[in-house]
Design a protein around this nucleic acid. Structure first.
Length: 338
DNA sequence: GTTCTAGAAC
DNA sequence: GTTCTAGAAC
């Protein structure tokens, strides 16, 4: 989990660490070195959410605290995200929030040593281009992070660290995130099945389509909207068709909306299961899921949906059957050039 | 979800 | 002989 720091922009003092989900009151005093009488000793109450990457700011003092020059108001609470500026009082004493990866190595006895790298694994080369959504994806070690998490998270259906929990780890990894807001995060699929393949995940854990309830409608619509935005910012969006949808029976835990271009031009698309999971009714359009939830108050998956993965390989455009994956891939080139 | 590989298919 | 898939292991 990242660490959260409350940073004085004027460099009046060292950054103050904000522990995850603990309230910290700050204002006039030795910690901030603020001596301004307009500033209350407890001017703001801060609470960091290190997982979601923001802190919530509550104004306790009478004089105005502001975020990006917008006054919070006494008793009100607003989020402060990296990049935004908080002014402690009267548009003075600027602060920002910063999240850093916790690199401290405790080296406690009995800690699992790093597993040997498989020969195919890429090295995660750090690049400085943190803002580019098109930056190269790194390959973080899921097992390491999960071995730490396992100490605090109670076991559910699958133990933490199991491959099916991988998305929960990836979505928290700032290196994987290409977009985030208060409700959702977008990551690039680690094994994209097309030239463009994103996953939109809600911060709140919804295990599967079965767990959807009417109150999730707005969230699903927001996920769809964010998915649409990813397509809009894609330079290929005029050339390629996209679909937004869910796997009827996903392998990975934590509900995720696939946003995938329809070229299916990717070395990660390797087998029949991959193909059929995106080109048969196994792939359910986001809009259909939302409509079903609005109509029935729940989402149901037809019996026998799993069998769709075994269907013969059929081109999603001209529906011509193809004998093998390599032949299918060859065939897809016909539609790409046209 | 992926990787690996035995053995089927060619 | 090589290519490709399917199923086990992770």
């Amino acid at each position: 989990m990242p660490s959260c720091w409350f940073v004085s922009e004027d460099d009046c003092h060292k950054p103050i660490q904000l522990p995850h989900q603990q309230t910290v009151s700050l204002g006039r005093g030795p910690e901030t070195k603020i001596k301004d009488q307009k500033c209350s000793r407890n001017q703001v109450e801060l609470r960091a959410d290190c997982n979601r990457g923001f802190i919530s700011v509550k104004q306790l003092g009478t004089n105005p605290t502001s975020v990006d020059h917008v006054v919070v108001g006494k008793g009100n609470q607003v989020p402060l995200k990296p990049g935004q500026k908080l002014y402690m009082v009267n548009q003075l004493y600027p602060y920002t929030v910063r999240f850093t990866e916790d690199t401290s190595v405790t080296g406690s006895a009995g800690e699992k040593s790093k597993p040997a790298k498989r020969p195919h694994q890429r090295d995660s080369t750090e690049d400085k281009n943190e803002e580019s959504p098109a930056r190269k994806m790194s390959t973080p070690s899921h097992t390491e992070q999960e071995s730490n998490r396992a100490k605090t998270t109670p076991a559910k259906a699958e133990p933490a660290g199991h491959w099916s929990q991988g998305l929960k780890v990836s979505m928290q990894d700032p290196k994987m995130q290409v977009y985030k807001d208060e409700k959702v995060v977008v990551i690039k699929d680690k094994y994209p099945k097309a030239r463009h393949h994103w996953l939109v995940l809600p911060w709140d854990s919804i295990s599967s389509l079965k767990a959807l309830r009417p109150e999730h409608c707005e969230l699903l619509k927001h996920m769809h909207k964010v998915g649409d935005r990813m397509i809009q910012q894609c330079p290929d969006n005029q050339k390629l068709r996209f679909r937004l949808g869910y796997h009827a029976i996903p392998s990975m835990s934590h509900i995720h909306l696939h946003v995938i271009s329809q070229d299916f031009d990717s070395p990660c698309l390797k087998n029949k299961k991959h193909w059929n999971s995106f080109t048969t009714d196994y792939f359910v359009d986001s809009q259909d899921i939302i409509a079903m939830l609005e109509r029935d108050g729940k989402v149901s998956v037809k019996e026998g949906t799993g069998e769709l993965l075994k269907l013969p390989l059929r081109c999603h455009i001209c529906h011509k059957e193809q004998a093998t994956i390599p032949k299918l891939k060859d065939h897809l080139k016909v539609h790409l050039s046209s």
